[in-house]
Design a protein around this nucleic acid. Structure first.
Lengths: 202, 202, 202, 202
DNA sequence: AATGAATGAGAATTCATTCAT
DNA sequence: TATGAATGAATTCTCATTCAT
């Protein structure tokens, strides 16, 4: 029975993983449900057995990954040991390394969901915002401690920070910038350094 | 003949303006060519007389506006009178005030083109990059003059700057932040202040 | 073994009863086999254990009830004690009271089978006709006895009688006429009186 | 211009006529929209140019014919020269001869619409009822004039009359009774004679 | 007897684009 | 320049049925 259930979950997982691959390769709108099924090696109808429709597959791909990110943001924010810079670096590192490990997943999350302001982005707006808000909270906390300057609205900082990361990943996704391990590490450093230290010469 | 031509250009213009309205209202993918024609008050086929296809209409909406921005960036970059901060503020102001004057145009440009990494964004990637590059150039120039710190790659700074603005506009477009004249002014100030001054307390 | 079998028949019966409910509520074509199973509280596949397919379930619902009606018609026809009017009233009463007791069953029989001339109606045409023929026989017998006029073909009378009842029940099923006990009693009286006595004033 | 318009209407008409043929031959549910288009000799999409969807085609086939019948009923009812029997005969004759001239149309109207209590029948219930009501009005008028007995509710008589005719046509449609010109003439006579004169021997 | 995962055929609908007038 | 009728490719989703366990 446990085996049965596990086998079933395996098929469901296979569909999700196949979806990530074909969504990343062809884009959500340019792949058919049958492409997912073929890639997963299952029958067409099984996709609809496990998912309400094609949208629901993408929803789950997004929510699964975005949920992990939200957890990291929350942990970072709540960690009393870390400075604001360390917290922001931790968040940025997680996102950037997510791309390092699973560029396909991050491509789907960003290209097909968060940047699709008219469709999936709008549907998941609240969830997406929880990410911005978490970053904003990190900033607000640091402002309250006097660690960061108080005259920039935290929500604004959160949006700019996230916008910056998203643009970086977009550049990687489309091969406009190298994304080797060192590039990724530097991206985090530069991002934190830019936003916290500022571009001004000292 | 001149009158005739002017009348023709008027119809062409009417189609473009109508397209902006319907693209902004329903999104490029959710409006039909006939919606554009209806909104413009012209016959279906006339859209195809003036434009190769539906894509070409959006292309032109995008290129028209993005071209203006590129000019502003170029002018700012080349202006020897301005500091880096002033140049960045000029660019940011142009974008932000473009949204103030024509939120529909900017919504179409951002939501339907620059954020559509798989379709229009990819097609116009080179053009979009010219914007990032212009900003990068402003940073590079300032670094060479010792006005900005030299250890952040200018191209990186350009991407983060643009990513930040795009995210701000996206928030405005979807009503997640107020976009009144004062909000827009402050957004520019905060953005420049964040990126140049940094968030760190002094 | 007997207990086992009884338990099994109970499940089978539960499926049939569930089918009647969902067929009546949503219509045969708008309910899935899983709806029947859910309503019966059994697993999907069990429906296919007891029935060849979805059609077979409806077939049985129909045949079960229509068989009862055929028996009543046969009994009425064969009863030497009854006049033609009494026989027709007996048949009409049975149908009308079937609706009184089990409106769901009669709805399914009429809406999903006898009126479906292209599908189930056609399949069960012979069975349905046995009803018309039984009524025709009642008329023919009465004509032979001089009780009814001989110049109306009995088969024709049977069709009109049945068509009249079916239309009455259809009106009830869709709430176009009240179907309270008194309405039902009067419907029988009026039907027999109309067809035998005629509408002409005397 | 008139030619153009006429040509267009011709195509529309061709689609309707083709639909009647394929609906009659295969049944509404068993034919695809492409069957209609093929039969009409037009492209698939043209069906959707002239009709909202497949349902709308059947709706129009029904309404066109049923409208004619309603006119005949109204005329008959309003004609002061006619007796009730003559009025009912006129209505019955129109229906029966409609079948004589266009058995395909009447088959579609009855089999695919009026008998489809769960789908099209329900949608057009109000329109269908106007037919029953018209007949009921004929009966009511005659009762008021003392021409028909007053103790049978006119609405009831209308339902039985219509149910009788529908059942007759259904028998014809499925070849269960001959429907030659003489059969049709006799059907009208027998129906009127049965309902007005009654089956009782005198 | 009982379960429910797995299969895959089938059909409506949309809409960009063409083209005759 | 202007019209809008005509074309037909493309894809989702449903659900009856099968079958391994």
């Amino acid at each position: 029975m446990a085996t049965r259930s596990a086998a079933n979950l395996e098929k469901r997982r296979a569909i999700l993983d196949a979806a990530i691959r074909v969504f990343a390769e062809r884009g959500f709108n340019h792949c058919r449900v049958s492409d997912i099924a073929d890639e997963a090696g299952v029958a067409y109808g099984l996709v609809y057995h496990y998912f309400k429709n094609k949208d629901a597959v993408l929803d789950e791909v997004f929510l699964e990954r975005w949920g992990l990110m939200l957890e990291v943001i929350e942990q970072a924010q709540a960690d009393p040991e870390l400075t604001a810079r360390e917290k922001l670096a931790k968040v940025a590192t997680f996102i950037v390394e997510s791309y390092g490990h699973r560029p396909d997943v991050m491509q789907v999350v960003i290209v097909e969901v968060t940047r699709q302001a008219n469709t999936f982005g709008r549907r998941h707006w609240a969830t997406i915002q929880r990410g911005h808000d978490g970053i904003a909270q990190i900033v607000a906390d640091a402002q309250a401690r006097g660690e960061l300057r108080p005259d920039i609205p935290p929500s604004f900082a959160g949006i700019v920070f996230y916008g910056g990361i998203e643009q970086i990943l977009t550049s990687w996704i489309f091969g406009l910038m190298p994304a080797e391990p060192d590039d990724r590490r530097r991206a985090v450093e530069h991002l934190v350094e830019t936003l916290c230290g500022g571009l001004d010469a000292r």
